[in-house]
Amino acid sequence: MRGKGIGLADVLEIEPNFLSRHGVRWWAGGSGLFDPTTIATAREQGVETISNLYGSSEFAPFAVSCVEHFGDYHVAQGHVLVEVVDSSGRPLQTRRRAESS
Rank of each mutant, 00 (worst) to 15 (best):
V80H: 09
T94M: 10
V11P: 06
Q93R: 14
E48T: 03
D86Y: 06
H69Y: 02
P91E: 11
V80I: 14
L81W: 12
G32N: 13
R21H: 11
Q45K: 01
A76S: 10
F70P: 09
G30H: 10
S31W: 05
T37C: 05
D86W: 04
R96Y: 11
A9P: 09
E13F: 03
L92N: 07
L8W: 00
G7A: 08
S65D: 08
G32V: 14
Q77G: 14
Q77R: 15
T49F: 07
D72E: 12
V64Y: 04
K4Y: 08
S51M: 11
Y54D: 15
I50T: 05
G29R: 08
L92Y: 10
N17Q: 13
L81H: 11
T49G: 01
R95C: 14
V80G: 13
V67P: 09
A63K: 14
G7I: 01
G3I: 05
A40P: 06
E44G: 05
I50H: 00
P61T: 12
G23P: 14
L12D: 01
V84S: 08
G3T: 15
Y73F: 09
E58I: 13
H69W: 06
I6T: 03
T41L: 04
T49N: 11
G46N: 04
F18Y: 09
L19E: 03
A40I: 02
D72F: 02
F34M: 10
S57Q: 13
P16I: 06
N52G: 06
H22L: 08
L33R: 14
D86R: 07
G78A: 12
V64K: 14
R97L: 12
L81D: 11
R43G: 01
Q45M: 03
E83N: 14
P91Q: 11
G5Y: 02
V24K: 01
E48D: 02
D72I: 10
V47R: 00
G71H: 11
A40V: 03
L19T: 03
T38M: 02
Q45H: 01
H79I: 08
N17S: 15
G5L: 13
D35W: 00
S56H: 15
L33Y: 10
F59R: 14
V64E: 15
A42H: 00
G5P: 06
V24T: 06
I39P: 01
F70N: 07
G3Y: 09
R90Y: 08
L92D: 04
F59G: 11
S51G: 04
H74D: 10
I39Q: 01
W27F: 09
S101W: 13
E13K: 08
E44K: 10
W27T: 07
F70R: 03
T38F: 00
A28V: 13
R95G: 09
A9F: 00
G78T: 02
P61C: 02
N52M: 03
V75T: 13
V64R: 13
R25C: 06
F70K: 00
V85A: 05
S57A: 11
L8I: 02
R21L: 02
V75L: 12
V67A: 08
G5W: 02
G71K: 01
I39C: 04
L8M: 11
W27M: 06
S87N: 02
E68L: 14
L53Y: 04
W27N: 03
I39V: 07
